[in-house]
């Protein structure tokens, strides 16, 4: 078991390193292959008004003339220990983890990202709780009453849920529940109150995005739970459980659901990991200042360091989620512990 954990941990670190290499390659290597020079890369750092000579100097100082491997080393070192950027007039310290400076705001990327993290985390975790409970409960009920009216209705709604895009359901819900309604369910766009400042206000500002996002995922989880339950309830061990004289409730929840939940756990971890790297559509639709919104803004402004920062943070969450799922799997399924 210990070696299993260590092996998974090492694997996660290796994954993150590989992701950083790929990110680096996308942002520095690919432009070069497309014809960019050290100067054209540096030009973005010094602004449009800079002279050709200033650009050349900047390119040298930023190290764009060094071999790629050295550049990657500097990039990686920046993330781990922080970096100093020498723009000419002065040296600016970019503390670890340093993903570079925004072209636009001239501010380091990381503190900005860190500010937006609570929004995305609140959104993702809140929605996850709702969709997990709603989806699994619906799925279990549907499976137990297969073919009933409830089952058909739930699966119909679920089909709608997975098919409708967030920007549609989100806007519909805003129109119906928010704009100009006396009992507006969400605060006017763009506001976010941190949990520790005012929990009630926090929940109030997030309730609509939560439900919209949860609807999309709950639909998928309901379908997944339903098919998983249908499969496990046909397992021999369910028949054994019944033959022991257990009550149907124990059979369903202790024996059936336990077996059906394992694959759901895997997907849940990955979904959550993905969302923590930014729920782009939801955040845009509800104007929530989260990482997804940050990414969209960065892309529209071609603010390369920001995009890179978001990419790495998102990848980090996915890798961590994967790791957590793997470890949880070993807890849930004793058969995994052996290998």
């Amino acid at each position: 078991m210990v070696t299993y954990i260590i092996r998974r941990l090492i694997w996660a670190v290796v994954m993150i390193a590989i992701v950083s290499m790929i990110t680096f390659a996308i942002f520095f290597l690919v432009p070069r292959l497309a014809g960019a020079t050290s100067e054209s890369l540096a030009a973005r750092y010094v602004g449009r008004t800079a002279s050709a000579q200033q650009v050349t100097v900047a390119a040298e100082r930023l190290g764009f003339n060094d071999p790629l491997i050295v550049q990657y080393g500097r990039f990686a070192k920046g993330i781990v220990t922080g970096a100093d950027y020498d723009y000419g007039p002065g040296v600016e310290r970019c503390p670890a983890p340093c993903f570079g400076y925004s072209f636009l705001t001239r501010l380091p990327v990381w503190p900005d990202l860190l500010n937006r993290l609570p929004v995305t985390l609140s959104l993702a975790l809140g929605a996850a709780v709702i969709w997990l409970i709603a989806g699994v409960a619906t799925g279990v009920l549907s499976a137990l009453r297969r073919g009933s009216f409830f089952d058909r209705a739930a699966m119909g709604i679920a089909l709608a849920g997975v098919s409708l895009p967030i920007f549609f359901t989100g806007i519909v819900s805003l129109v119906v529940f928010s704009y100009g309604r006396p009992l507006a369910l969400t605060a006017p766009g763009g506001s976010f109150t941190p949990f520790f400042v005012n929990p009630a206000q926090w929940a109030y500002s997030l309730i609509l995005p939560w439900i919209t996002l949860a609807f999309l995922y709950a639909a998928g989880y309901a379908r997944l739970t339903r098919s998983g339950m249908l499969e496990t309830m046909n397992e021999d061990y369910i028949r054994t459980a019944r033959a022991k004289g257990l009550t149907e409730r124990v059979v369903v929840f202790k024996h059936g659901l336990r077996g059906a939940l394992t694959p759901i756990l895997t997907i849940f971890g990955l979904d959550l990991g993905l969302l923590m790297g930014g729920a782009v559509l939801t955040e845009s639709t509800f104007s929530l200042p989260g990482i997804g919104k940050y990414a969209i803004d960065a892309i529209t402004n071609q603010d390369l360091p920001k995009v890179m920062g978001v990419t790495l943070v998102a990848a980090f969450f996915v890798v961590v989620a994967n790791l957590v799922v793997d470890l949880l799997y070993a807890v849930v399924d004793p058969r995994v512990r052996l290998s």
Binding site: E235, D236, Y237, R239, T240, A241, A243, H255, R258, G259, V332, D333, P334, R335
Partner: peptide
């Protein structure tokens, strides 16, 4: 009752 295949007839978890 005793079932045929004890591996699938017992809960793996």
């Amino acid at each position: 009752m005793i079932f045929q295949d004890p591996l699938s007839a017992m809960h793996p978890y």
